[in-house]
């Protein structure tokens, strides 16, 4: 099978859907000059010049424009440039887009995708390195997608563009050049469905986005020590595929949850809580979480490396969960 990058998979998903549905358009800052700052829209400005719009630096109006267009017959994808800037648009996302259908008694739909590159590891400093996905799991009204591979990006983005609800789509900025197999023929991946990225029998690691790759490297190392790790890539964190998690937990009895965003109040906290509420009797050890230290993301490479988790942290967490059994 051919291999393409995450950036190419993103552009392909959009171009295929835009060819079929004339109501899809892309709006955000600095999109057309280089096909997006990570090359995620390369080819689209030439193919659909009227449907990819460069905006002023006005994040509230950009997201609001997406909301208003989605209410009136269009299916916008809003590019937020960096996920960090989502803080500027919290009212438009949380109180408006995510609330409207409910607040108006089901009268409206919100076919809007808010697309944002998140994640650290590029020494981009405290204002261009954060991951905020857990906030959008905490507040109701949003579907939150956090894919890890070109194949998943393409299939899930196509689903997100076809969905009638608000979808937040976070892609890790270190993964845009990551290559992986993607078939030529069309496919979609349903939202919510998790994927077993590696089968194993001793420990379940529930993860997503960049940490999937760190977890897979840790699993290879652990295999050499005779420890079999099952890697569950959630892909969608809300609503999430509890059945897939449960099936694996029942098999292994040991759970590690790994994400790059802060451990405190993170997605792992909610997952751990739900797992112990529903599967307590299957657990042989306390759940171990892996996440960033509770500090802003620093600039200097050794500092950044100290703060965000990697394969070494997953390796140690797996050892810990087995030692405590």
């Amino acid at each position: 099978m051919r291999e393409i990058t995450v950036a190419q998979a993103t552009a392909e998903a959009l171009m295929e859907e835009m060819s079929k549905d004339p109501t899809i358009f892309i709006i955000g800052e600095d999109l057309t000059a280089h096909g997006g700052i990570f090359g995620q829209f390369v080819g689209i400005p030439e193919k659909f010049p009227d449907r990819i719009l460069d905006t002023p630096i006005s994040e509230t109006a950009i997201v609001g424009a997406g909301v208003g267009a989605a209410l009136t017959g269009m299916r916008p994808l809003v590019d937020l440039h960096f996920a960090d800037f989502i803080t500027i648009t919290m009212d438009e996302i949380v109180s408006q887009a995510a609330t409207m259908r409910y607040m108006f008694g089901g009268q409206s739909k919100m076919p809007l995708v808010i697309w944002a590159p998140d994640g650290a590891g590029l020494s981009a400093g405290p204002h261009h390195s954060k991951s905020f996905e857990s906030w959008f799991m905490h507040a109701p009204g949003m579907k939150v997608v956090v894919p890890s591979t070109p194949y998943d990006v393409k299939g899930l983005l196509k689903s997100a563009l076809r969905d009638d609800d608000l979808v937040l789509f976070f892609q890790h900025k270190k993964l845009f050049k990551f290559k992986g197999p993607v078939p030529e023929e069309e496919y979609i991946i349903p939202l919510k469905k998790a994927d077993v990225k590696r089968e194993g029998s001793d420990v379940t690691v529930v993860t997503y986005s960049m940490m999937v790759h760190h977890t897979l490297s840790a699993a290879k190392r652990l295999e050499k020590e005779g420890i079999s790790v099952e890697v569950i890539d959630l892909r969608t964190i809300w609503p999430f595929d509890f059945d897939a998690v449960a099936e694996s937990v029942k098999k292994t009895g040991h759970v590690v949850i790994a994400h790059e965003s802060w451990k405190v109040g993170g997605v792992g906290a909610e997952l751990a809580s739900q797992i112990q509420e529903k599967l307590f009797d299957y657990l042989d050890a306390p759940i171990v979480r892996v996440g960033a230290e509770h500090v802003p993301i620093p600039f200097s490479p050794p500092l950044e490396k100290r703060v965000i988790p990697d394969d070494e942290d997953v390796y140690r967490a797996v050892k810990k969960v087995l030692e405590e059994a």
């Binding site: 709006i27 997201v63 609001g64 208003g68 267009a69 209410l71 009136t72 408006q96």
Partner: peptide
């Protein structure tokens, strides 16, 4: 809160 949404309706 209505201003940004009005832009979207106008753009649409």
């Amino acid at each position: 809160g209505q201003f940004p949404i009005s832009v979207g309706a106008g753009l649409s």
